[in-house]
Amino acid sequence: DHDVVPEDKFQETLHLKEKEGCPQAFHALLSWLLTQDSTAILDFWRVLFKDYNLERYGRLQPILDSFPKDVDLSQPRKGRKPPAVPKALVPPPRLPTKRKASEEARAAAPAALTPRGTASPGSQLKAKPPKKPESSAEQQRLPLGNGIQTMSASVQRAVAMSSGDVPGARGAVEGILIQQVFESGGSKKCIQVGGEFYTPSKFEDSGSGKNKARSSSGPKPLVRAKGAQGAAPGGGEARLGQQGSVPAPLALPSDPQLHQKNEDECAVCRDGGELICCDGCPRAFHLACLSPPLREIPSGTWRCSSCLQATVQEVQPRAEEPRPQEPPVETPLPPGLRSAGEEVRGPPGEPLAGMDTTLVYKHLPAPPSAAPLPGLDSSALHPLLCVGPEGQQNLAPGARCGVCGDGTDVLRCTHCAAAFHWRCHFPAGTSRPGTGLRCRSCSGDVTPAPVEGVLAPSPARLAPGPAKDDTASHEPALHRDDLESLLSEHTFDGILQWAIQSMARPAAPFPS
């Protein structure tokens, strides 16, 4: 592969990997390779389809078979030569091979799209000592099968071997295949498990690692696999990028399955594409389908809103127990993405979901129960707010008499603000006073009005108090039968009158 990737590009890729991570280095090298001529790309395919690569990765054979028959990708048995050289000459001794072996032994695996480039050397060096003999053996194999790289107009793939297949390693990572398949204008990513390549439709969760975000852009890794992070704060999961590491605690105790298979379609829109997988259930989501939507993949363990709600429900009964003089119970939860139609709101002032922060849900004790107040519409209280300059209440639009249902020339009671006709409430011909108009209920007259088809109010509507207090003497005590009587009149003013009279009014101040 030294004929494909020059030394300066190799060093530039290593520097970019240390600065921005393996995914960015892979993407940059792939983009550079696509700008080369067809001879360089053909050399790339020839390096990929060597015999030892085909033996190690069985899924490469179907890719090789898909090439046109007129494309010669065979390799000479006596060494490598550029395709432009007409004579089959043995190339001179390859010093770059020693360079590659020494550099890969030092860096474990470079971040390139060629056999030198995919593992994360920093994480491997940190986690190597417990498994040094086995990992050293794996390093000797890295130059042979560490990076199976493929690129063409139909298929483009980048393979990364790992030393996680050490025997006896619980939940060992089998390997990473960062794979971009450009077929019919689409893009897919796969993962390699035990020599087999699994596409998103049959993606397997190998051991402790999972394909957290099938994305090839942005600074985030394709698999949430930063070796420096180790395990999740809650004892979460091992990262795919942690090559040759000792077994780590796999999943939280509440995880239903340690080796679950995540779905390959969004649980909201039932469509495929780039998904984020939940650590607590097999569901996966688009970032845009979450509520609120996320802009980037959160670091650490992530769970959907259903799993978060289940966790909150487990903690909430203990938080609601009476604990005198104790601060509110704080339950730190990872930043969760909410699927459509589901929402768990945190306290005000918290950062938005999706940031690399930890939301704190506070379970406050329930407030003391209070008697429910009568629910009145805002339009129902409008007549009470229509007060004239002299303190006389004006008529609201649409006000109707509670007896006849007519809204023409209605009066407004100064005591309960109900609309009424003087002739309907006082049919006996009582003279109307000039000021202080009161309806039949507030004036103490319980004589029913002779209106055909309208039920008369119940005599129990009024329960006047002592006459010594004029204001308190007109406080009506309405009961269920009074409400039914008012409802039978089918008037809004009657219902409003009952609601206003049912509310307690402050006692009249004593004259000074």
Rank of each mutant, 00 (worst) to 15 (best):
G241R: 10
S245Q: 12
A248V: 08
Q257K: 09
Q260F: 11
N262M: 00
E263Y: 04
E263I: 06
E265W: 12
C269E: 06
R270T: 14
R270G: 14
C277W: 04
P282Y: 09
R283H: 14
R283G: 14
F285Y: 11
A288Q: 11
C289P: 13
L290D: 12
P292D: 03
L294Q: 14
L294F: 13
R295I: 12
S299K: 05
R303W: 06
A310F: 14
A310L: 14
T311E: 06
V312I: 09
V312L: 10
Q316W: 15
P322E: 09
R323M: 12
P332K: 12
L333P: 12
L337H: 09
S339D: 11
S339L: 09
G346N: 13
A353M: 15
G354S: 08
M355T: 08
T357D: 08
T358E: 05
H363T: 05
H363P: 10
P367S: 08
P368S: 13
A371M: 09
P372Q: 06
L373F: 07
L376M: 10
D377V: 10
A380P: 06
L381A: 15
C386D: 05
C386R: 08
P389R: 08
G391E: 06
A396Q: 14
P397R: 07
G398Q: 08
G402Q: 06
D406T: 10
V410Q: 03
R412Q: 08
C413S: 01
C416P: 03
A419C: 12
A419S: 10
R423K: 02
C424T: 01
A428P: 13
G429Y: 13
G434V: 11
T435M: 12
G436D: 07
G436T: 06
L437K: 10
L437S: 05
R438A: 03
C439Q: 00
S441Q: 10
S441N: 03
S443D: 04
G444W: 07
D445R: 04
P448W: 14
P448E: 04
P450H: 12
P450I: 15
E452N: 06
G453L: 10
A463E: 10
T471Q: 15
S473I: 15
H474D: 05
E475S: 02
L478Y: 13
H479P: 11
L486G: 03
D493I: 03
W498M: 04
A499Q: 02
Q501H: 07
S502T: 07
M503L: 10
A504L: 02
A508P: 07
